[in-house]
Design a protein around this nucleic acid. Structure first.
Lengths: 232, 232
DNA sequence: TAAAGAAGAAATTTATAAATTATCGGCTGA
DNA sequence: TCAGCCGATAATTTATAAATTTCTTCTTTA
């Protein structure tokens, strides 16, 4: 049996399957492909201009991530949303990121604190909405928001845990998108991020964890009350 | 846009892609397909007697679970093993299952304690090896072992967390398989499980968590010292 | 109401295209 | 002259597309 080792290579020319995977994932998370929708191959093929093979491979990848549910012999569906899942995801995120932030802060370095400060500054000066009066999602905001939260827990020392946190963030993102337009004016999310940053820089672990968890819980509460009509 | 809801159905006729997925996963976790090995489609097609499409779909699923690494345009490889990963996986498992056990014990019910007792009893009377003198893996043992640990954290109230723990168990299983034949005679793992059970039934949360974490750490230590020659 | 058949969709096989790796021969420089 | 390197071409392998089979579901008729 030959045991060829994979030669590490930096760049990745990106295969069609990977491209369509990313596009499908984005469309599911933003709910452009709404929860519960049937994903028929014919429809997707003309919608995204790809053949069945790369499409099918993308769907299979999304299946193990549970963004897509595959019913054997009966096609694929966008994963449903539910109150219970929102609740469980939020609870889990509070637990796991609380843990990760504790570890991260124990490993704190000056360089880390500085990059956290920078990440917060970028978040602070990126507007949530492209327009002042009506809400229009600013795609940059989610990027810098993600970056800030990722930096917070980035020093926890466990790549598997970081991966899990990212997956939780992805799953929760879909719920956030479902209520953001309505919740936008009410929420003062900037202050919460600032409070978290301050506690971290003050090296007050317990307070930082408490504020981070409160931040996630508040987000869920807003969505929760907002989703009364949408989810059964 | 039509929004057909997926009709929930109990049985699953099992598609070829799903079957080959399960077989590949099992062969990777047991290291019958050794770490780093290149997974050429032709070889796998005749080895498992399937066409490329279901094979490719299975590989794509395994890719998102990180049991297989897909190099764009350059084929698939079995994920490598490393000391660092073993260490991170163990650390993460101690953290996360510690958390889950705490929650589970706070939700303890009589029925749960009873099923835990049963799970332990089954584990206790299932031999680790099929032969007394030389080690020969008893496939039933891993099943009851998994069941015991799954029961321990089963009441934590978070399906995402349980899924993550299962994934960690899968990833660590491969490392256990790499050293089990050598480690078998030395380890007194039965006592550790009994001690955990006792602490749980005594409702001593801190002690139970400590013993569970120690159990995982010891397992890792044995593998670690055993793998000196195998991993670079 | 149940059974049979037709239509539609999904899963798999077979075939084609594109990309990568390996091989060979010639060239350059010591 | 010989060792090492570069480039072109052949061979292998992966990625995608087209076609076929199999399964499901809807409809119609007895």
């Amino acid at each position: 049996m030959s045991t060829d080792l994979p030669i590490p290579k930096a760049d990745q020319p990106a295969t069609l399957a990977t491209t369509i995977y990313a596009r499908l994932k984005a469309d599911i998370l933003t709910t452009r492909l709404e929860p519960g929708r049937k994903l028929q191959s014919r429809f997707l093929m003309e919608q995204y201009n790809v053949g069945q093979t790369p499409l099918r491979e993308a769907l299979n990848r999304l299946t193990t991530e549970e963004f897509v549910v595959g019913m054997e012999q009966r096609g694929f569906y966008v994963k449903e949303v539910s109150r219970e899942e929102l609740q469980e995801l939020t609870k889990t995120k509070c637990w796991v990121e609380g843990l990760a932030l504790r570890e991260s802060m124990q490993n704190a370095t000056q360089a880390w604190e500085e990059s956290l400060l920078v990440a917060h500054h970028r978040l602070d000066r990126t507007p949530r909405s492209l327009k002042a009066d009506t809400f229009e999602d600013n795609p940059d905001w989610e990027k810098v928001h993600r970056a800030f939260h990722a930096t917070l827990i980035g020093l926890c020392g466990s790549r598997p845990l970081l991966g899990f946190c990212e997956q939780l963030a992805d799953r929760l993102y879909r719920y956030r998108m479902m209520s953001i337009a309505k919740a936008y004016p009410a929420r003062k999310v900037g202050a919460e991020h600032r409070d978290i940053l301050q506690a971290v820089l003050a090296k007050d672990i317990e307070e930082a964890v408490r504020r981070l968890q409160q931040h996630y819980q508040r987000t869920a509460d807003v969505i929760y009350s907002d989703l009364d009509g949408v989810i059964g």
